[in-house]
Design a protein around this nucleic acid. Structure first.
Lengths: 312, 312
DNA sequence: CGTTCTTACGTGTGTCGTAACGATC
DNA sequence: GATCGTTACGACACACGTAAGAACG
């Protein structure tokens, strides 16, 4: 068995079972990749691909199983290379961060700024996606770190560190009655059209559950994945927004009124996730540190409780 | 990076940094192994070994880190080969079981007997060790499955399945006063010299803690790792034995009296451990099944509670 | 002086690329 | 007929083994 054979296996799977495209990606010619697959199947004594004629159609059961471990193997070699780069003293490399829009837009900027100062030679990549997608990207080693609030529990291969806790706030055009009335209750919220996140994003599940538990049905007239979109339509007067508190920017959002809602909803914990077994380079660990520091600083301004030391 | 380079790295470490002996084990000549190490160090740009002159003395920090992942990589390739063997239909191979003496002597025999009938072409190896050693052997992939009650919690890389619960019983020469008096209490036990397991074995910690918690100090006059040894000295009249109940054999031990002590001590859970990430071959999973079935059968004869479904 | 690792060199294996062939939509 | 995979073949690379040299106890 050779590493190149495993690389070809994975490349073919990720190229939707096109050997030619896999070969391109690997900077090889197509017969070479074909040979790798053949050699693997011969050594293992089993077909890894189901075929339709000559064309590859999918993985056999054996193929699925092999794939899992092939990924582990190559992840291991990547870790080994990373150790090397860490010890050559070059603080250079690539840091691939997976984040939702809310994280990338409102939470990450100060973190990124500090990180860039410390590691100017590290190329930063921010890849966006739904929490679900981020989790998958992380286990597939397409991002180094993922930052999100949801969907991480289902992947035992991921280690997750709690980074900060947050809750929601209400935003509305200045002068809106909900900004004046005291106190705000779940019932009051239901009297107005609401704009918030779509399901699967930024604590939407807990949001909905909170109302459901007391038998209320909020009138969500619009939901979006991005806080920006929510703000936009709040400004247009389509309804009141319920957003993650860290996403409110006092300066840019001075035209909007804001009220804290942490007495109404459960606190959410945003976590940093990465592949449990992989080697984290120095600057990757440092990024996590900076993130936590900035998160703590942010928490000082709010009433957020400390993150629990809980397990991943 | 090539797999052979990683193999050489590991072999050299496991040969106490002798390149020649590593080469022997790998069925290579010594310059070949030297070259592998050199290539690895060159590719990573770091020394992996600390040297005294030409001789290798130990691993550098980078070397230690690389070693961890190199093991993962080769464990992955082993899993891939195992998938292949599972799918070629040959139910042959090797099953390496790590067990303490108590397990190997009193619990495993019926399991092994059934397993051998089902898989006559699988070679069985029973490797003995302390629970601590067994855990290490498992993470190093020197055994496939380890069966023990202790020391597994400290290794996050291990998956553990609860298999059966057991408690202790008292053994003494027939006619011994402790066999007659009713009921047996911790206090009564302290009146007699006791023979039981050494620390780190077969629930010795819980044994000692139980007494300590009520301020009693049992007079342990002899401790051993093997139940056989304990029985021997009980027969010689050196004291009463406190052993794992499954280790009492009504037929062979007819010359000894026995009393259940499960009302005095906490129940222990024996677990089956294996490397979390590795692929378990069919017959390996089947062995676990058989083990659990036999454990259940054994539990029917005792008052043992069902194993909890708890996590690994 | 034996042991152990390094360096040097030749041979043979095997990997990849080119090219021609076959199948499938 | 264009696309995609397989087969055939040759050139180049390189991994291993042999053999000789250098450091260490």
């Amino acid at each position: 068995m050779e590493l190149r054979q495993l690389r070809s296996l994975i490349a073919v799977v990720e190229a939707d079972f096109s050997v030619s495209r896999a070969a391109e990606r690997l900077h090889l010619v197509q017969p070479a990749v074909s040979q790798h697959l053949k050699q693997l199947e011969e050594e293992l004594g089993t077909l890894l691909f189901s075929r339709q004629g000559k064309r590859l159609a999918g993985l056999t059961e054996a193929g699925e199983r092999v794939l899992v471990h092939a990924r582990r193997v190559l992840s291991g070699t990547a870790s080994i290379l990373a150790v090397g780069q860490d010890h050559t003293g070059h603080d250079s490399g690539v840091l691939r961060i997976g984040a939702t829009h809310t994280q990338a837009r409102y939470v990450l900027p100060p973190v990124i700024r500090r990180f860039r100062e410390e590691y100017p030679r590290v190329e930063l990549q921010i890849l966006q996606g739904t929490p679900q997608q981020l989790a998958v990207m992380t286990v597939r080693d397409q991002v180094d770190l993922a930052i999100c609030t949801e969907a991480l529990h289902d992947y035992p291969g991921l280690a997750t560190l709690p980074s900060y806790r947050w809750n929601r706030c209400l935003i509305a055009p200045l002068g809106h009655p909900l900004l004046e009335v005291s106190p705000v209750t779940l019932g009051r919220l239901c009297e107005y059209p609401i704009i918030t996140y779509v399901a699967g994003f930024t604590g939407r599940r807990q949001f909905s559950d909170t109302f459901a538990r007391v038998g209320l049905r909020p009138r969500v007239v619009l939901s979006a994945t991005d806080t920006d979109i929510i703000k936009t339509y709040v400004r247009e007067g389509m309804g009141v927004g319920i957003i993650a508190a860290p996403a409110f920017e006092p300066v840019n959002d001075a035209d909007l009124g804001r009220r804290d809602l942490s007495h109404l909803f459960p606190w959410e914990t945003t976590r940093i996730a990465y592949l449990r077994e992989r080697y984290l380079r120095r600057f990757q660990e440092r990024f996590i540190e900076i993130f936590k520091e900035e998160a703590d600083r942010m928490a000082l301004g709010s009433r957020a409780p400390r993150v629990p030391p809980g397990p991943g």
